[in-house]
Structure formats: structure tokens, C-alpha cells
Write a protein that binds this DNA or RNA. Sequence first.
DNA 1: TTAACTACTAACAAAAAAGTAAGTATGCGG
DNA 2: CCGCATACTTACTTTTTTGTTAGTAGTTAA
Lengths: 121, 121
Amino acid sequence: MRKKENSTNSINEANQIKNCGVVYALSLIGGRWKPTILFSLLDAKQRYNELLKSIEGISERMLVAQLRELETDGLVNRTVFAEVPPKVEYELTDKGRSTEKILRELSQWGILQRSDGHHHR
Amino acid sequence: MRKKENSTNSINEANQIKNCGVVYALSLIGGRWKPTILFSLLDAKQRYNELLKSIEGISERMLVAQLRELETDGLVNRTVFAEVPPKVEYELTDKGRSTEKILRELSQWGILQRSDGHHHR
DNA sequence: TTAACTACTAACAAAAAAGTAAGTATGCGG
DNA sequence: CCGCATACTTACTTTTTTGTTAGTAGTTAA
């Protein structure tokens, strides 16, 4: 289901992505599952099933969708092997690898703040 | 409207926030408007109306809601002055200030990636 | 034939985020 | 009285994100 164009919502999003580097960055790496997926792929290239098994709580639907977005945004390469049963591998592109520093620092900051205070919402 | 408890959605969110520092960090600083608000407050403490005027496209509703969340999460101090007309000031706490480095690096990475590639979604 | 493997797709439903519009409160001034 | 200033609150509505469920495809083995 495509996002509706020409809504205020859509226009505001586009403007924020255009004008704020953070909002843009988070549109690439943010969300419930992407950080975890990116961290997994930092370790090693992985197959769909490996990712599915290693990320607790994620559904097939969400895994596929997030991988597709990461691929579309150029962070991930998806390689289909001509085999049966199907074999598909996902690995980070250079762009994907460039998230490493940011992800680690976000993680560090998050872990620090999490032990300092409470999450109230 | 409180978030629904005991849904898979809610449980997965709580787990990700608990187990992934990035997801936790982004729950504090992520979203359409928070990064921009945080950057504004990095410059100087500001009043509600100043923020409203300086952030293009944000509604009063969204500004209030985001400020409330930032306050609840300990990133922002809200000071009410005993005046008429009402005067309320918002400024970053130490915790809020600690986001500066991360925000600047996210911004830098985002701006770099934005000029390198296209946003496909 | 069924069952298994892998990696999805499609069609919804539920939940959350964001947006719209109207209204409130307290003084002050004309 | 009305209009103004400031900073919200309230009750919805719209849009997006996330989750659920059933199904698909191609081979292989029992």
C-alpha cells in the first residue's frame, strides 16, 4: 500500500527529510527492526532464515519488508542463488557499512541513558 | 490515548527497547519533529511560540505533544513563569545536551548520504 | 500422493504516529 | 463588553507502521 501523496503528512515528511539530516538518516536506519538487522549484517552476510531465527520476535512479514527497504535504500545487497531450495543472501553495501560508527555510538548512548533513567512512555 | 498493553506490537517494542540500545535511543530522539526541536534548543532556551514559529510545518498539537514527551523522558526542562500572558520556557537538561554529539554525527552522515544517493520511498 | 525445504507474497487487521479544528484559561486594554 | 496575548487541551480524523494469516513456487524424498 503506497503512501498517500499530497497529504500534509506526506509533505511534512518530505520537507523534514529534505531539510534535516537527522530525520533523513533515521528514515534509513530507524524503526523497530532495522537497527537489529543492520547489527546482524555487520557481523557477517546472512541468509533470510538465519536472520529470522536470530532476531527474536520478528515476523517473516516484517523481516522481508525491512530487508526490502534496506535494499531499496542501498544499504543492503540481496543475492539470489540459482538453487533449489531457494538460497538468498543479504550483506551490507559500503553504504550499509558506513552506518557502523553511528549505530555503535547510538547504542552506547542509549545503553548509558537506559541505565541512568527511566523510560516513561 | 495510552498505548495498548499486552499486544504483540507493544511487547515487541518493549523487548527491542530493552535489548537494543539503538532502538531505545531512537525512542527518545526519533520521529518527525524531535530532532529539529532538539537542534533548536541546542542553540538557546526557547519559548513555545518561538519554537512554533521557527519550525516550519509543525502544528501546535505536534509541538506540544513532542515537548511533553521530551520532558517526560528527561531531555527537556519546562519552566512556567507566573505571568500573564503565560510565559513558558523550554531548555535542554544535561541529558538533552548529551544528545548533541549524536545528533551532529547523524546529521552529518545523513547529509552525506543524501547527496550520494536517492531516497526511494 | 504428502511432507519437507527456503524465501517469500498478498490481503487484511491492529496499533501508533501525525494531523485538523475547536475550544480553554488568565489577565490587560480599549 | 470585545479583542488581544500566550500556551495549551480536547475530540476527532487521517496516515503510516507493524502484525496476522494464508498461500505460493520449485524441487526432492518417502
